[in-house]
Design a protein around this nucleic acid. Structure first.
Lengths: 252, 252
DNA sequence: GCGCCGGGTTGACATGGATCAAGGATTGCA
DNA sequence: TGCAATCCTTGATCCATGTCAACCCGGCGC
């Protein structure tokens, strides 16, 4: 259950995250170089990738699955500070010791590079550093958006915001859906949601129930969420920066 | 009072932030190039540098003073998401529209570059992009630390954390001080502290009073803070990541 | 010297979310 | 088939922090 294994080598050309990950700007030649130094690692849901303070000998990209970046206070209070999805980058060049815990939330596959060769390649490959800068700036913006949520939003708004983000993501990437109706599976347990939103799991559960009673969401089992009217969900997020890029109701 | 002016050109070689800003890795030659495209801007305390959604035609470094990055919800709730101090960078290459409000907290001087020439120079000057990546990664770490504070710390811990950070900064940069005793001026009003910490200004005021009554800090007027025992302050922050890099009591 | 204003403090009270506690559903395993 | 573990829900109660309101203080213009 908690075992870790290395999976078969896969060609970069066929990779699902080829056009969004840190390697997305690389030429074929550069890709071949990366190919030579990369390896895959796989983690079962719940397994730790690295603990804060421990050495992290590699950098990598999430290929499939979801990972959580989090921090824990001495007395056990825990805050998730990032939810890493496919194409997101793990680790920091030049820093061999992790400052956050990284944990597989679902089953997880990472495309990894040993730190030294990757750094060497970054120095000689502007495409890599450029893309990493861009991704880091995006992460920084996202972290700042999340600070607004953590500092100022109510429990209800926090839940609605998370659901809206997941719904939008599902609708942009996902399978075509009838009308404005979006459905997706929560990648997180109630406890993980609480850690992410700065709440307790009881509050998460209550607010989910409240949104269900209000008809804003429909729950099938505990993980499957259907959003009958995205605009109504967004109306409960407390801000409308989510309203842009509404999932297109006229999708084929 | 709210007027904006351009101040006299100053040579990069003499600049106070020469070794910490985005230009810190540049050679003399590169510095001369930057010198040719830079200009200074000055803002009075309280003045807005740019509002979210507005065009921001330049990028820049804080030379002196303090600026706040913040976000506002429709109903007026406001969260500061960054406190920019000398050498910190403002703006994002490639993005001509600000997503956050930027405001001068104290009187402020920025060293500015028009976006296009700066981007052109970044493309041809790895030193610039390298340093910007490093600074952005640092900012991201700081943002994530702040997420822990916003999501999980109590009001008391939030205040103690902010004071500890300011105290440490003052003691590292500052004038030598007798014994372990650190003193500094708060750059922020109670309201700005509240915006930064995700609290109300009344709660900030109460917690400051409580820390004063407990003898953890001494207030001279409303802005001047003296910390008689840094370790006692750190003990109230709720985590000890601040405890590293204690201000050296044996400073000359 | 007076009144005003911005920034700060303090008190009384309300409330959202935490805490403590019990129990339900699902899954895997004996 | 039953037991245990995990995840989730719901209820009762408590308390930290928000809200509303009064007031203080120092500086500045007149």
């Amino acid at each position: 259950m908690t075992h870790l294994f290395t999976i078969a080598h896969q060609s970069c050309g066929d990779c699902q995250i080829r056009f969004r990950a840190v390697c997305s700007r690389c030429t074929e030649v550069e890709l071949a170089q990366l190919d030579a130094i990369k390896f895959y690692r796989s983690y079962a849901a719940g397994q730790s990738v690295v603990l804060a303070g421990a050495r992290l000998e590699f950098l990598g990209s999430v290929v499939t699955g979801v990972a959580a970046l989090s921090q824990t206070l001495d007395d056990g209070r825990r805050q998730m500070v990032g939810l890493l999805q496919p194409s997101d980058f793990v680790g920091r060049p030049g820093r061999p010791v992790a400052v956050f815990d990284v944990e597989a939330v679902s089953d997880l596959v990472l495309c990894c590079f040993r730190m030294k060769p990757f750094e060497a390649m970054m120095a000689s490959t502007p495409h890599l550093a450029e893309r990493l800068l861009e991704m880091t700036l995006d992460e920084l913006d996202a972290a700042r958006e999340w600070m607004l949520l953590l500092g100022r939003k109510t429990a209800r708004e926090k839940i609605a915001t998370l659901l809206a983000i997941l719904a939008r993501r599902a609708s942009l990437l996902g399978r075509p859906n009838v009308r404005g109706l979006v459905a997706f599976d929560l990648p997180l347990t109630r406890e993980a949601m609480a850690d992410y939103l700065g709440l307790t799991l009881e509050t998460v559960s209550r607010q989910m129930s409240a949104l269900r009673k209000d008809g804003v969401i429909v729950l099938s089992g505990t993980r499957r969420v259907t959003v009958p009217d995205f605009a109504r969900l967004v109306a409960r997020t407390g801000d409308d920066s989510l309203a842009e890029a509404l999932p297109a109701p006229k999708r084929a």
